[in-house]
């Protein structure tokens, strides 16, 4: 079984600042890492491979520095790494990114399953997996917490919902995004790290992928009108006293604010 895990290099979110004057997002140079949710997707792919055999390919679209994220995934045990990289890709939105990833997946041999993390911690949109499934015309299940069954041509999964989970069965090839409840990601081993340092990474430019650059990168459908730092949260209030008094005070406040 050939499993592709799409990963994204993201900045360490706590260290990212937005200049409130210019609205420019300031990302410290040394702060990149694999999107934490993608680590669960990598782990799940490795577990599937360990159980059923096959290969795991990690795929990313991003600037040259994103190769680091691929190497981190190789260190964890992924077999192959593919990097979609072209100046024309810079600034791609979710729809354009999905176009590129789907084109990348199209270049790979007999893919059965494409895994994603539930969302990227920088843009927080959870939209790329669905777009990719659409581009490939494959079925998708998002927010999966467990693979119940898996065979060459179908899979049964549990999808998290707000009040529990659904069991879904999809034919393969298909697209699945996973939540962090699915597993506990491993750490890189010494051997994995050494291998990853020397492993080749296949790169694809726009020409090699055969994508129309008029629809990606700066030509993406989304335009950013303005960036601003999130509003600072108002300080909370702690009510003190005996439970009965506190409950009464809370009730008055909620009523005053017309919440109840």
């Amino acid at each position: 079984m050939h499993i592709v895990v799409c990963i994204k290099q993201v900045p360490e979110i706590e260290r990212v600042k937005v200049d409130s004057g210019t609205g420019k997002v300031i990302v410290p140079e040394d702060s990149s890492m694999i999107n934490p949710f993608d680590e669960y997707a990598i782990e799940e792919a490795l577990r599937i491979k360990e159980k059923h055999g096959g290969t795991v390919t990690v795929l990313t679209m991003g600037p040259a520095s994103a190769a680091e994220a691929l190497r981190s995934a190789l260190a964890l045990g992924a077999d192959e790494a593919v990097h979609l990289m072209d100046p024309a890709f810079d600034g791609s939105d979710a729809a354009a990114t999905a176009t590129l990833l789907a084109a990348g997946i199209g270049k790979l041999d007999k893919v059965s399953l494409v895994l994603f993390g539930r969302n990227a911690v920088d843009t927080d949109a959870s939209s790329v997996p669905g777009y990719v499934a659409g581009r490939l015309n494959w079925p998708q299940v998002l927010f999966v917490r467990k693979f119940v069954e898996l065979s060459a041509d179908k899979s049964k999964v549990e999808r998290m919902t707000e009040d529990g989970y659904d069991t879904c069965e999809i034919p393969l090839p298909g697209v699945v995004s996973v939540v962090k409840e699915i597993n506990e990601p491993r750490l890189p081993s010494l051997k994995g790290k050494m291998r990853a340092k020397k492993a080749p990474i296949a790169t694809f430019s726009a020409a090699a992928l055969g994508v129309d650059t008029a629809k990606v990168g700066p030509n993406s459908p989304t335009t950013i009108v303005r960036s601003q730092p999130p509003p600072t949260r108002k300080k909370g209030e702690i009510l003190e006293g005996e439970p009965d008094d506190v409950a009464a005070k809370l009730f008055d406040k909620l009523r005053a604010d017309q919440i109840i």
Partner: peptide, 18 residues
């Protein structure tokens, strides 16, 4: 060396997290 730095990174991450 690069290899030694890699060892340091792997060991440090394990020590920090586990």
């Amino acid at each position: 060396t690069e290899d030694q730095l890699a060892v340091q990174e792997v060991a440090r991450e394990f020590a920090e997290k586990k």
